[in-house]
Each structure stands twice: as structure tokens, then as C-alpha cells.
Design a protein around this nucleic acid. Structure first.
Lengths: 229, 229
DNA sequence: CGGCCCATTGACAGGCATCAAGTCCGGTGG
DNA sequence: CCACCGGACTTGATGCCTGTCAATGGGCCG
């Protein structure tokens, strides 16, 4: 639609809005456009042949998704929060890629940027233990989350999506959150907001330093014991 | 590819050998070369910070691995079987990419080819049930396996690697194989060889058509019931 | 022939998926 | 402004799956 406008150099991009749950593009559709996320969070969704849904990646402001690595999109892109995005014509994006390729001597980092989340998900769900997976997930995206007024990172993702991303059930995600809440690793001021309060512990659990999950339950509220490790 | 070989006298079509277990390149090393697998099977390996090993992808003859999508290799590449490979200089591979990009109007399919296995692994291990995962895994690679004399596909992969790929334990893989063996879906003439004997059933289980794993045990050897779907 | 590594099998317990019910919250309409 | 409603989250109970440990077997190589 506004591709013509975009072809004029120097023209200021007009970001299009999409409401929560809205579909940006569908898995299997031809890769005619590259979507650049300007604001909000989107998810990549794959539906198995008999209906079970997997969230294969979360995307944030600045990410480019729907790259024409193959003929068709490999996942469906949906808005998680309300988003703003810009659609780039495939051929134009391609020209920019080649130009950047020749100048920098390497591939456009955006290719890496779309593949990295997918790769990271494989690393995360390849580990066993829901709590570990949740912590690894939070660690992997904490840097890209918006910051609340009190300085804590906010996670406006529904738990159903997190469960579909972590290959587990919403109930298990909820229970994992409760454990982390009781450990004061995270706080949940509101239903749809999660604030990371103790990032060091979070990363410790994510990296598997806590060998036995049992230790999580044997939490000692004693201040000295807590700060010991 | 052929262009590369031509422009490098002396290295033309001379494939280098690597024995089973040998390392082609290490995770974190700078992407100086692209490795083209000519023969055999290789694996992509990632080791977590505290030591647990994950096989993130299997690669087969014809695949190009170690693509310079970022500055460093994202995984370690090791030979599973004995392999033959060709090493392409990064800059030369890059030139060929740009050329192919301009001519075909699309990215080199090899980029997709390296990312696809990683993506597929996420899909596979995102499902629950070891038997389902094993069947999905076999389905995803059955087309690329060598064929034995009697026409059955052969899978020369150690079960430890399959377990590390499927994010499960070697014991569970072994038990899943035993179930499939008893169902006459696969056969294992030798320790390191797996022949797919009933591909339709394999794909049925992989796609989740069998809703309850329980049904697998209640196998009906009746011919009519078997061929029903 | 002996040693080593991998595959196999059994026993066991713990984690987690599942089902079910209850609670909270935002949005809608009166 | 308030009541209602629907969806998401929460929590509990239960059984299965599977990870873990341990021991055995089997094949390959030195």
C-alpha cells in the first residue's frame, strides 16, 4: 500500500498499528514483505498438523521478522501487545541487504537477529526443569523489556504464551513463577506484569548453578543464608 | 560453490577427510571458513555454561555449515560418521553469495539450509512424549539417510547423540526404539543401524495422530486394523 | 583375550501434565 | 457508577512419564 511512498529516499516511515492478537503474516504465505517491529512485542507461532500450538520466538522493537530466507514464511507472526510496525518490500529490503553486504563485508545483522531467538529457544527448552527454563527464558529477554517507573523490568506476556514458548503447560509456568516469587527473584505487581528483582539469582538458576531443584524449596528466609550465594 | 573451487587452484574438489568425533570448528571461533559437507554426517553441538551438552542439529552431505551469520560460530561442528568436507574461504563464499543474490533475486538457499535443521529441532523437542519426539526426528531426517542394500533407510547415529538432540536421556531413547521395534515400525539389524520399515505409521505417530501413548502398547497385530489408516 | 564404550534392562522416585474447581481482573452494558 | 461476564490466572489432587542410578550384555579394537 504505502510501498510507493517508501521508495522515495528520505521519506519518513509511517508505522502501522496492530492490536493485541492481530496477525502480521501467516505461516506458509509467500515472503513478500519484511516486517520491522517499531514498538511492542510480537510472537512467532507454529501450529502442528493436528493443532498443538508452539510459540517459537518472541520479537521486540527493532527486530526485523519475516525475512525471505525461503519462499514462504516459516511461522505466523502475531502481535502480543499492541505494536507498531513498518512493512518493507521484499525486493527493496533485498537491495539494501546486498548493499550492506558489499560495504560491511558481512551479512546484514538482521538475518542473525531473526534466527537467534529461534536458536536460543532450542537451547532453553532443551534443558529439563520448568523453573530452569523459565529463568533461562527471562534471562534471555530481560534486556529487551520495557522498564517500569520503579526501575524493574516489566514482562507484558500472557502465561499461556510463555507456556507455549517453553513447551510446558500454563499451570507449570504459574507454579514456577510462584516459586520465583517466594524466592524474591521476581515480583508481580500486576497480573500481566513481571518485574525481575534479583537478576543475579535469576541467572544463577538459569545457568544451572543450583544443581538440585530441591534446594529451591528449602529456601531459608534468613538474610545471611540468602545472600550467602 | 563451483566458482569457488575454480578460483582456488589446488583445492579444487579435493575434499578433506575427518574421522568420527573429529571437530570441524569450535563454537565461538571466528567464522573464517564455510564448511561444505560432501559425505557423511556431522552434528552441531552446544555446551551450556555448566557442562550439559546439546546436539542442536545434524548435517548431511550437501549441507553448508558454519555460515558467517554472525562474527563467530554459534555451535561446534563435529563429525558423527567419517566425513568428507570442503572448506571455503569466508570472503570468497561471501562474494558468491552476493553474486547469487543479485542474479537469483533471493538469498542463497544454503542460508536457509543451515537454519532449517535448527528450526526443526525446536519444533520437535517442543512436543512432549519421547516416542513422539523420536518419530518426529526420524521423519525429519529419513529422506537424507543412506539406503541399505535391502532398501531400508539406515541411521548411523549413536543413541547418545539422538538423546542429546531430543533433549532426553539415552535410556529413554533406547526404550522408545524398543517400543517402535515391537510395533514393527523400525528394525535394527545392527547396533548402529536403524531401518524404517513402516514409514506411514512412523509419520502417524510423529504427527500426533495417535492421541494417547497408551494406544501404542495396545497394539493390534490385526492386519485390517493396522492398514485402516 | 581383555578392556572399554555403548546399548540395554530393571527399579524407583520425582516432576510435571492433566483435570477440575475456584479466584481475580478488565471490559461491557445497563 | 455499578453489576455482570468472560477469560486468564491460581491452586489442589492425582497418575503417568521419564530422569536417574545401577547392573548387565555386547561389540569393537588394541
Amino acid at each position: 500500500m504505502h510501498n510507493l511512498a517508501r521508495s522515495q529516499p528520505g521519506y519518513r516511515d509511517i508505522a502501522m498499528p496492530a492490536g493485541s492478537g492481530e496477525i502480521l503474516f501467516l505461516e506458509g504465505d509467500p515472503c513478500d514483505h519484511v516486517y520491522e517491529l517499531r514498538r511492542g512485542i510480537a510472537r512467532g507461532v507454529n501450529v502442528s498438523s493436528e493443532g498443538d500450538r508452539q510459540v517459537t520466538a518472541f520479537f521486540f522493537a527493532g527486530d526485523q521478522i519475516g525475512l525471505p530466507l525461503s519462499e514462504c514464511y516459516r511461522f505466523t507472526a502475531e502481535a502480543v501487545t499492541d505494536v507498531l510496525y513498518v512493512r518493507h518490500s521484499r525486493v527493496r529490503w533485498h537491495e539494501a541487504l546486498i548493499r550492506s553486504c558489499r560495504e560491511d563485508g558481512r551479512l546484514l545483522p538482521s538475518i542473525c537477529a531473526e534466527q537467534d531467538p529461534i536458536f536460543r529457544r532450542g537451547m532453553i527448552i532443551g534443558r529439563n526443569g520448568v523453573v530452569v527454563r523459565v529463568c533461562a527464558f527471562l534471562t534471555s529477554i530481560v534486556d529487551r523489556l520495557p522498564i517500569s517507573a520503579d526501575g524493574a523490568a516489566l514482562l507484558p506476556l500472557p502465561q499461556t504464551d510463555i507456556a507455549a514458548y517453553l513447551a510446558t503447560s500454563p499451570e507449570s509456568v504459574c507454579r514456577a513463577f510462584r516459586q520465583l516469587r517466594e524466592m524474591h527473584v521476581i515480583a508481580m505487581p500486576r497480573r500481566d506484569q513481571i518485574a525481575i528483582t534479583d537478576r543475579a539469582r535469576l541467572e544463577a538458576i538459569a545457568s544451572g548453578i543450583v544443581t538440585r531443584l530441591r534446594m529451591l524449596h528449602e529456601r531459608r528466609p534468613t538474610a545471611t543464608a540468602d545472600t550467602a550465594f
